[in-house]
Amino acid sequence: MTITKKTALIYCQDQFGLVDGKTAAALVRHSELYTIVGVIDSLSAGNDAGEILGEAISDIPIFSDFQDALAHLSETPHCYIYGKAPLDVCIPSDERLLILEAMEHGMNIINGLHEFFSEDQEFVAAAVQNNVQIKDIRKSPNVKDLHVFSGRIYEITVPVIAILGTDCACGKMTTAVELNNALNRLGIKSVFVATGQTSLMQGAIYGASIDALISQFVIGEIENAVIQAFEQEKPDIILVEGQSAVSHPAFMSSLGILKGSMPDGIILQHPPAREFRCDFPALLMPTIESEIQLIETISSARVLAIALSHENLAIEEILSTIQQYETQLNLPTTDVLSYGCKKLIQALAVHFPKLSQKIKPENFPETRVLAKA
């Protein structure tokens, strides 16, 4: 089925390229639902969004404010996306005014926060008046449509791989999306199961924003998404997006992912240069060894490979860091945004020989080269 993309402007004031701007960054990199025509962030205005992320030119401009965007775009975008993922629950008053202004210009509102705009009386009235829609990505389905764990996950007969991490916002989703795309380019049918609001915004067909669910249903919803992907797509492999970290004291989502998907293997994402948990400056990052030990203690799955985030690393440091981790952990290690997914695919082929039968070495995607760190 061909999806007609809607044009979209992303609001990410003060945060684009930073941890809390991860939703905007992900949509700039990849979206099956939206054609991103610009980002709002006065701190980076005048630059190309891809270059700010340290990657190739994306031809997506960054604007200083909403009016600047409308003045330079050839037409008003269909959608206004709130592209920040802050720890705070509610948005400030100045950002409310911008959302109202976007609706006055006929833009639909896409919201990934826990604060539901579709339940805000002022926003609802403005949407009706301007004949636009509000979509809350994190809004849970009705209880009657939710699932509890059934045990049917044991019926899955293809490898299920969870991409977990040592912290929030460290690249788990990016690695999962890049790996999913690379596998499909090779002729291996891979299906991606989303567990967060950003990947659902990108267009993932299967999954749920699990941190918005009542805890009773988290494991069952993940299990159901994996089963749906298996039954409807007949894939060769299923990739499940991770959330937070098993060791993170503030979040439980990784445990639900492990229990609900019963993975056959883990790819572990880690930001080597990060000293403290993002949004928690008093919490030191765990060592990658301790995270592996914890995952493999509570799960029957083994960590098969490591994917690194190059945040705060100079270009020349990335390769040496990869080599250091491979020596230290005796596990294939890469940074998919710098060097592609070849090592991850090779690791999967070694552990799951049926996959290797479909892989031709000459079809591996080329190594990427970063524009800057």
Rank of each mutant, 00 (worst) to 15 (best):
D68M: 07
L100Q: 11
P61E: 08
D59E: 14
P86I: 13
A85K: 03
I60E: 00
P61T: 09
A45T: 04
L87T: 14
E55S: 09
K84Y: 12
I60N: 00
L53G: 03
A102Q: 01
P77A: 03
L87S: 14
S64I: 03
R96E: 14
E51R: 10
T76L: 02
L70P: 04
I57T: 13
S58D: 06
I91T: 07
H72Q: 15
I81N: 04
P86Y: 10
L98M: 13
P61F: 08
F66W: 04
S42T: 01
G54E: 06
C90V: 15
F66R: 00
Y80K: 05
L87F: 15
L100V: 08
D48E: 06
I91P: 05
M103S: 09
I81S: 06
S42M: 05
P77G: 01
I81K: 05
E95S: 11
P92I: 10
A45Q: 06
S93I: 15
S44W: 00
L97N: 12
L87C: 11
D88I: 08
D65W: 05
E101P: 04
A69R: 01
A85V: 13
L53N: 02
Y82W: 14
I52P: 00
A69L: 09
L100C: 03
I91G: 04
C79M: 05
E101R: 10
K84M: 14
E75R: 09
T76R: 01
E51G: 03
A71L: 10
Q67V: 03
P86T: 13
A49K: 03
D88S: 14
G83D: 03
R96V: 15
G83I: 03
I57G: 04
M103D: 07
T76W: 03
A49Q: 05
N47R: 09
L97E: 14
H105A: 09
Q67T: 09
G54D: 07
L43Q: 12
G54R: 04
K84Q: 11
L97I: 12
I60W: 02
L100F: 06
C79F: 06
N47M: 10
L97Q: 13
I91S: 10
L87I: 15
I60G: 00
L87M: 15
I62H: 02
D48C: 05
E75I: 02
A49S: 11
P61M: 05
H78W: 06
D68H: 08
E104F: 04
D88Y: 14
F63G: 00
M103P: 00
R96T: 14
L98T: 12
A69H: 02
A49M: 07
I81V: 12
V89T: 12
S64D: 06
D59Q: 11
L70D: 00
G83Q: 01
M103F: 08
